[in-house]
Amino acid sequence: MARRLASSDRGAGPYIWRFSPLERVLHAMVIVSFFGLVITGTPLLYSHMPWARALIRLVGGFQAAGLIHRICAVITFGYFFIHVGHLTYRIAKSTDKKRFFWGPDSMVAGPKDFQDIRDMFKWFFGKGPRPRFDRFNYMDKLDYWGEFWGVAVIGGSGLVLWFPVFFSRILPGWMFNVATIIHGIEALLATGIIFTIHFFNVNLRPEKFPVDVVMFTGRATLDYMKEEHPLQYERLSREGRIEEMIAPPPSRAAYLWSVSLGLIGLSLGILLIGLIIWALIQGGWR
């Protein structure tokens, strides 16, 4: 079969499992809530832009926007605590704690990640071979920890702004000003990283262009794994565990849905970044 649109489905099979159903559901919650938050939040930051007014009217006014923003915040706290809860359960259940935290399936940054960053820059300048990654590379880990940091910082400041009267029992009123600054700029950082860097790293760079749906279907071809996660592939082969990781190909419907939603999400994200850049060019950074 010719190269398919999604990089996760290109080349020779069979398919290998990469993400569990829970991980995919949580990621879907991230996508939905994050778009909801960005669409209803960014207009406040750039309220002087014509598109900000249009966007707020589109979602039904600022009160509707506020409601959507809070619903998406609840979804965010939801996936955050589901993940933390599940992680705690897995930590408790794991028999090999050292491997759990420092092994290839862990999100904890290890010495190899720092070597990889160094080697990656060497490769950029033609001073060495391209680093080879295991299951999670340093970019995946940064996305993951960025999410942790982002939810804590944006979520925390957001709660202060959501319940000002409650928080005024312990915080002075000017903390609402501080919370507004933190909330806005950190949200902009999250938006900027996700809609440019994350999109580039996992979808738009030439090796993966235009889209990678492994996070939607949960599986990718063996060729994809050899290219993107060679160390994991070699490790699994060595351990003879490839067989147990083999997944049935995604159904045609699942594939089409994944690609469509992936491309829609990418376009929407890039559009929003365009609007932000437009506002920055016009209004400066304040």
């Binding site: 700029i185 950082l189 900027g192 440019t196 580039f200 790293n201």
Partner: peptide
Amino acid sequence: FMTTLLVSVWSFFGLHSALWLGRL
């Protein structure tokens, strides 16, 4: 503080992506 964080994080990864594209 927040602006420095934003600018440095985004610049680092922006550069990372740009160099990646250049190498390819």
